[in-house]
Protein backbone atom coordinates (compact mmCIF):
# COMPACT_ATOMS: atom_id res chain seq x y z
CA UNK A 1 0.00 0.00 0.00
CA UNK A 2 1.36 3.40 -0.92
CA UNK A 3 1.99 5.70 2.00
CA UNK A 4 0.97 8.69 -0.07
CA UNK A 5 -1.99 8.35 -2.32
CA UNK A 6 -0.94 10.25 -5.44
CA UNK A 7 -4.56 10.67 -6.45
CA UNK A 8 -5.24 12.62 -3.28
CA UNK A 9 -2.36 15.03 -3.85
CA UNK A 10 -3.06 18.35 -5.40
CA UNK A 11 -1.55 18.59 -8.87
CA UNK A 12 0.38 21.72 -7.94
CA UNK A 13 1.86 20.21 -4.79
CA UNK A 14 4.69 18.34 -6.48
CA UNK A 15 5.11 19.79 -9.93
CA UNK A 16 8.17 21.89 -10.71
CA UNK A 17 7.51 25.56 -11.29
CA UNK A 18 7.98 27.28 -14.64
CA UNK A 19 7.15 30.70 -13.20
CA UNK A 20 9.32 33.54 -14.48
CA UNK A 21 10.23 36.59 -12.34
CA UNK A 22 7.71 38.59 -14.38
CA UNK A 23 4.91 36.37 -13.07
CA UNK A 24 5.81 37.30 -9.51
CA UNK A 25 5.90 40.98 -10.46
CA UNK A 26 2.40 40.53 -11.96
CA UNK A 27 1.25 39.19 -8.56
CA UNK A 28 2.05 42.63 -7.12
CA UNK A 29 -0.57 44.30 -9.38
CA UNK A 30 1.88 46.93 -10.72
CA UNK A 31 -0.86 49.27 -11.99
CA UNK A 32 -2.58 49.43 -8.61
CA UNK A 33 0.86 49.80 -7.05
CA UNK A 34 1.60 52.87 -9.18
CA UNK A 35 -1.53 54.60 -7.84
CA UNK A 36 -0.56 53.62 -4.28
CA UNK A 37 2.97 55.01 -4.79
CA UNK A 38 1.57 58.26 -6.11
CA UNK A 39 -1.05 58.84 -3.38
CA UNK A 40 1.38 57.76 -0.63
CA UNK A 41 3.95 60.18 -2.03
CA UNK A 42 1.43 63.03 -1.95
CA UNK A 43 0.63 62.20 1.69
CA UNK A 44 4.33 62.17 2.50
CA UNK A 45 5.07 65.39 0.61
CA UNK A 46 2.11 67.25 2.14
CA UNK A 47 3.02 66.31 5.70
CA UNK A 48 4.57 69.02 7.86
CA UNK A 49 8.14 68.40 8.90
CA UNK A 50 11.34 67.43 7.22
CA UNK A 51 12.36 63.92 6.41
CA UNK A 52 15.59 62.62 4.91
CA UNK A 53 15.00 62.20 1.12
CA UNK A 54 16.59 58.74 1.20
CA UNK A 55 14.31 57.64 4.02
CA UNK A 56 11.36 59.12 2.12
CA UNK A 57 12.22 57.03 -0.96
CA UNK A 58 12.65 53.88 1.17
CA UNK A 59 9.34 54.58 2.93
CA UNK A 60 7.49 54.93 -0.39
CA UNK A 61 9.15 51.72 -1.64
CA UNK A 62 8.08 49.88 1.52
CA UNK A 63 4.49 51.12 1.13
CA UNK A 64 4.55 50.05 -2.55
CA UNK A 65 5.84 46.56 -1.69
CA UNK A 66 3.25 46.27 1.11
CA UNK A 67 0.49 47.15 -1.37
CA UNK A 68 1.95 44.64 -3.83
CA UNK A 69 2.00 41.98 -1.11
CA UNK A 70 -1.69 42.50 -0.44
CA UNK A 71 -2.25 42.12 -4.21
CA UNK A 72 -0.42 38.77 -4.15
CA UNK A 73 -2.51 37.60 -1.20
CA UNK A 74 -5.64 38.71 -3.08
CA UNK A 75 -4.59 36.70 -6.14
CA UNK A 76 -3.84 33.65 -3.95
CA UNK A 77 -7.32 33.72 -2.41
CA UNK A 78 -9.27 34.79 -5.49
CA UNK A 79 -7.72 32.37 -8.02
CA UNK A 80 -11.04 30.51 -8.37
CA UNK A 81 -13.08 33.57 -9.30
CA UNK A 82 -10.24 35.18 -11.29
CA UNK A 83 -10.28 32.10 -13.54
CA UNK A 84 -13.86 32.71 -14.73
CA UNK A 85 -13.56 36.46 -15.40
CA UNK A 86 -12.14 37.58 -18.74
CA UNK A 87 -10.33 40.55 -17.15
CA UNK A 88 -8.45 38.38 -14.64
CA UNK A 89 -8.22 34.90 -16.21
CA UNK A 90 -4.67 35.51 -17.46
CA UNK A 91 -3.34 36.34 -13.97
CA UNK A 92 -0.41 34.09 -12.92
CA UNK A 93 -2.32 31.82 -10.50
CA UNK A 94 -5.47 31.04 -12.56
CA UNK A 95 -3.30 30.72 -15.68
CA UNK A 96 -1.26 28.04 -13.85
CA UNK A 97 2.13 29.78 -14.09
CA UNK A 98 2.38 30.34 -10.32
CA UNK A 99 0.93 27.94 -7.75
CA UNK A 100 -1.46 29.23 -5.07
CA UNK A 101 1.08 28.25 -2.41
CA UNK A 102 3.82 30.27 -4.09
CA UNK A 103 1.55 33.34 -4.26
CA UNK A 104 0.64 32.94 -0.57
CA UNK A 105 4.27 32.58 0.52
CA UNK A 106 5.34 35.49 -1.67
CA UNK A 107 2.59 37.72 -0.26
CA UNK A 108 3.28 36.83 3.37
CA UNK A 109 7.06 37.28 3.10
CA UNK A 110 6.74 40.64 1.33
CA UNK A 111 4.12 41.80 3.88
CA UNK A 112 6.49 41.06 6.77
CA UNK A 113 9.52 42.65 5.08
CA UNK A 114 7.66 45.80 3.97
CA UNK A 115 6.12 46.43 7.41
CA UNK A 116 9.44 45.79 9.21
CA UNK A 117 11.35 48.03 6.78
CA UNK A 118 8.87 50.89 7.18
CA UNK A 119 8.97 50.51 10.95
CA UNK A 120 12.77 50.60 11.10
CA UNK A 121 13.31 53.32 8.49
CA UNK A 122 10.34 55.62 9.26
CA UNK A 123 8.37 54.84 12.43
CA UNK A 124 6.14 52.14 13.88
CA UNK A 125 2.91 54.17 13.56
CA UNK A 126 3.35 54.15 9.78
CA UNK A 127 4.32 50.47 9.89
CA UNK A 128 1.22 49.59 11.93
CA UNK A 129 -0.96 51.50 9.45
CA UNK A 130 0.67 49.62 6.54
CA UNK A 131 0.09 46.28 8.31
CA UNK A 132 -3.54 47.28 8.90
CA UNK A 133 -3.91 48.23 5.21
CA UNK A 134 -2.59 44.82 4.09
CA UNK A 135 -4.82 43.02 6.61
CA UNK A 136 -7.87 45.07 5.58
CA UNK A 137 -7.36 44.41 1.87
CA UNK A 138 -6.40 40.72 2.11
CA UNK A 139 -8.68 39.58 4.93
CA UNK A 140 -11.56 42.05 5.40
CA UNK A 141 -12.08 42.88 1.70
CA UNK A 142 -10.82 39.81 -0.21
CA UNK A 143 -11.81 37.00 2.13
CA UNK A 144 -14.93 38.46 3.66
CA UNK A 145 -16.65 41.41 1.96
CA UNK A 146 -15.95 40.75 -1.72
CA UNK A 147 -18.07 37.61 -1.93
CA UNK A 148 -20.71 38.52 0.62
CA UNK A 149 -22.06 42.06 0.13
CA UNK A 150 -22.66 44.60 -2.66
CA UNK A 151 -21.07 47.15 -0.30
CA UNK A 152 -17.78 45.24 -0.78
CA UNK A 153 -15.89 47.98 -2.58
CA UNK A 154 -17.41 50.75 -0.42
CA UNK A 155 -16.02 49.35 2.84
CA UNK A 156 -13.06 47.63 1.19
CA UNK A 157 -12.18 50.95 -0.43
CA UNK A 158 -10.73 52.00 2.93
CA UNK A 159 -7.67 49.86 2.12
CA UNK A 160 -7.04 51.76 -1.11
CA UNK A 161 -7.61 55.08 0.67
CA UNK A 162 -5.03 54.49 3.39
CA UNK A 163 -1.71 54.97 1.47
CA UNK A 164 -1.65 58.80 1.84
CA UNK A 165 -2.35 58.35 5.56
CA UNK A 166 0.60 55.92 5.76
CA UNK A 167 2.78 58.36 3.79
CA UNK A 168 1.79 61.23 6.11
CA UNK A 169 2.46 59.10 9.19
CA UNK A 170 5.90 58.15 7.81
CA UNK A 171 6.90 61.80 8.29
CA UNK A 172 4.89 62.88 11.33
CA UNK A 173 4.37 59.63 13.22
CA UNK A 174 0.71 60.51 13.64
CA UNK A 175 -2.68 60.41 11.93
CA UNK A 176 -4.06 63.91 11.54
CA UNK A 177 -7.19 65.58 10.23
CA UNK A 178 -5.36 66.57 7.00
CA UNK A 179 -4.37 62.99 6.19
CA UNK A 180 -7.91 61.85 6.96
CA UNK A 181 -9.20 64.38 4.39
CA UNK A 182 -6.95 62.72 1.78
CA UNK A 183 -8.31 59.36 2.96
CA UNK A 184 -11.90 60.60 2.57
CA UNK A 185 -11.33 61.81 -1.00
CA UNK A 186 -10.06 58.38 -2.16
CA UNK A 187 -12.67 56.59 -0.04
CA UNK A 188 -15.51 58.49 -1.79
CA UNK A 189 -13.79 58.15 -5.20
CA UNK A 190 -13.63 54.33 -5.03
CA UNK A 191 -17.35 53.39 -5.33
CA UNK A 192 -18.14 55.41 -8.50
CA UNK A 193 -14.82 54.28 -10.03
CA UNK A 194 -15.48 50.56 -9.47
CA UNK A 195 -19.24 50.69 -10.07
CA UNK A 196 -18.61 52.31 -13.48
CA UNK A 197 -16.40 49.28 -14.25
CA UNK A 198 -18.95 46.88 -12.72
CA UNK A 199 -21.68 48.30 -14.99
CA UNK A 200 -19.92 47.36 -18.22
CA UNK A 201 -18.35 44.20 -16.76
CA UNK A 202 -21.46 42.97 -14.93
CA UNK A 203 -21.49 39.74 -16.99
CA UNK A 204 -18.02 38.88 -15.74
CA UNK A 205 -18.95 39.49 -12.11
CA UNK A 206 -22.18 37.49 -12.49
CA UNK A 207 -20.28 34.48 -13.87
CA UNK A 208 -17.90 34.66 -10.91
CA UNK A 209 -20.78 35.02 -8.45
CA UNK A 210 -19.47 38.28 -6.98
CA UNK A 211 -22.33 40.38 -5.58
CA UNK A 212 -21.37 43.68 -7.22
CA UNK A 213 -24.03 46.39 -6.93
CA UNK A 214 -25.22 46.24 -10.60
CA UNK A 215 -25.77 42.47 -10.27
CA UNK A 216 -27.61 42.69 -6.94
CA UNK A 217 -29.49 46.01 -6.98
CA UNK A 218 -29.69 46.51 -10.75
CA UNK A 219 -28.23 49.05 -13.12
CA UNK A 220 -30.71 51.85 -12.27
CA UNK A 221 -29.91 51.75 -8.54
CA UNK A 222 -26.16 51.61 -9.29
CA UNK A 223 -26.34 54.67 -11.54
CA UNK A 224 -28.14 56.61 -8.77
CA UNK A 225 -25.53 55.56 -6.22
CA UNK A 226 -22.73 56.59 -8.61
CA UNK A 227 -24.30 60.04 -8.97
CA UNK A 228 -24.71 60.48 -5.19
CA UNK A 229 -21.09 59.50 -4.58
CA UNK A 230 -19.97 61.84 -7.38
CA UNK A 231 -21.68 64.75 -5.60
CA UNK A 232 -20.07 63.81 -2.27
CA UNK A 233 -16.68 63.41 -3.97
CA UNK A 234 -16.92 66.81 -5.67
CA UNK A 235 -17.57 68.44 -2.27
CA UNK A 236 -14.87 66.43 -0.48
CA UNK A 237 -12.36 67.52 -3.14
CA UNK A 238 -12.71 71.05 -1.75
CA UNK A 239 -12.05 70.03 1.87
CA UNK A 240 -8.26 70.61 1.70
CA UNK A 241 -9.05 74.32 1.18
CA UNK A 242 -11.61 74.36 4.01
CA UNK A 243 -9.18 72.51 6.29
CA UNK A 244 -6.52 75.09 5.45
CA UNK A 245 -3.80 72.94 3.92
CA UNK A 246 -4.41 74.00 0.29
CA UNK A 247 -5.00 77.37 -1.33
CA UNK A 248 -7.71 78.66 -3.66
CA UNK A 249 -5.50 77.78 -6.64
CA UNK A 250 -5.99 74.11 -5.75
CA UNK A 251 -9.64 74.88 -4.90
CA UNK A 252 -10.37 76.10 -8.43
CA UNK A 253 -8.78 72.98 -9.96
CA UNK A 254 -10.69 70.72 -7.52
CA UNK A 255 -13.97 72.49 -8.29
CA UNK A 256 -13.53 72.13 -12.06
CA UNK A 257 -12.53 68.46 -11.70
CA UNK A 258 -15.49 67.86 -9.38
CA UNK A 259 -17.95 69.43 -11.83
CA UNK A 260 -16.46 67.17 -14.52
CA UNK A 261 -16.96 64.11 -12.33
CA UNK A 262 -20.59 65.03 -11.63
CA UNK A 263 -21.16 65.66 -15.36
CA UNK A 264 -19.76 62.27 -16.36
CA UNK A 265 -21.85 60.62 -13.63
CA UNK A 266 -24.93 62.49 -14.88
CA UNK A 267 -24.28 61.01 -18.34
CA UNK A 268 -24.19 57.54 -16.72
CA UNK A 269 -27.42 58.29 -14.84
CA UNK A 270 -29.12 59.23 -18.16
CA UNK A 271 -27.76 56.13 -19.92
CA UNK A 272 -30.73 54.03 -21.11
CA UNK A 273 -31.10 50.44 -19.90
CA UNK A 274 -30.97 49.30 -23.53
CA UNK A 275 -27.47 50.78 -23.98
CA UNK A 276 -25.20 47.72 -24.10
CA UNK A 277 -22.10 49.59 -25.33
CA UNK A 278 -22.22 51.71 -22.13
CA UNK A 279 -19.90 54.37 -23.45
CA UNK A 280 -20.81 56.85 -20.64
CA UNK A 281 -19.81 54.26 -17.99
CA UNK A 282 -16.52 53.59 -19.78
CA UNK A 283 -15.95 57.35 -20.09
CA UNK A 284 -16.60 57.81 -16.35
CA UNK A 285 -14.19 54.98 -15.51
CA UNK A 286 -11.46 56.64 -17.59
CA UNK A 287 -12.23 60.10 -16.21
CA UNK A 288 -12.16 58.83 -12.61
CA UNK A 289 -8.52 57.74 -13.03
CA UNK A 290 -7.64 61.10 -14.53
CA UNK A 291 -9.56 62.89 -11.75
CA UNK A 292 -7.60 61.32 -8.92
CA UNK A 293 -4.26 61.81 -10.63
CA UNK A 294 -4.86 65.48 -11.49
CA UNK A 295 -6.43 66.29 -8.10
CA UNK A 296 -3.46 64.90 -6.14
CA UNK A 297 -1.00 66.51 -8.57
CA UNK A 298 -2.80 69.83 -7.97
CA UNK A 299 -2.28 69.38 -4.22
CA UNK A 300 1.45 68.86 -4.80
CA UNK A 301 1.78 71.83 -7.17
CA UNK A 302 -0.20 74.00 -4.77
CA UNK A 303 2.14 73.07 -1.91
CA UNK A 304 5.15 73.80 -4.15
CA UNK A 305 3.78 77.24 -5.11
CA UNK A 306 3.22 78.06 -1.43
CA UNK A 307 6.73 76.95 -0.47
CA UNK A 308 8.17 79.12 -3.28
CA UNK A 309 6.16 82.06 -1.98
CA UNK A 310 4.19 82.40 -5.22
CA UNK A 311 0.81 81.72 -3.61
CA UNK A 312 -0.42 82.50 -0.10
Amino acid sequence: MALVDQEQMEDTAYRLSEAAPGDFIALLKPRVMSLVVFTAFVGLAMAPGVTNPLLAVISIAAIAVGAGASGALNMWYDADIDAVMGRTARRPVPAGRVTAGEALGFGLVLSAFSVATLGLMANWTAAALLAFTIFFYAVVYTMWLKRSTPQNIVIGGAAGALPPVVGWAAVTGTVSMESLVLFLIIFLWTPPHFWALALFKSGDYERAGIPMLPNVAGHAATKKQIFIYALLLAVSGLLPVVAGFATLVYGVVAAVLGVGFVWYSWQVLRMPESDTAMKPAKALFGYSLLYLFVLFTALLVDRLLVSLGLVF
Partner: peptide, 15 residues
Protein backbone atom coordinates in the same frame (compact mmCIF):
# COMPACT_ATOMS: atom_id res chain seq x y z
CA UNK B 1 13.38 18.98 -14.60
CA UNK B 2 12.69 19.96 -18.18
CA UNK B 3 14.81 22.57 -19.96
CA UNK B 4 12.03 25.13 -19.52
CA UNK B 5 11.82 24.45 -15.78
CA UNK B 6 15.60 24.77 -15.37
CA UNK B 7 15.60 28.03 -17.33
CA UNK B 8 12.74 29.44 -15.24
CA UNK B 9 14.52 28.40 -12.03
CA UNK B 10 17.73 30.16 -13.13
CA UNK B 11 15.79 33.35 -13.87
CA UNK B 12 14.03 33.18 -10.49
CA UNK B 13 17.36 32.63 -8.72
CA UNK B 14 18.90 35.68 -10.40
CA UNK B 15 15.84 37.81 -9.57
Amino acid sequence: PTEAQLKARRKRSVA
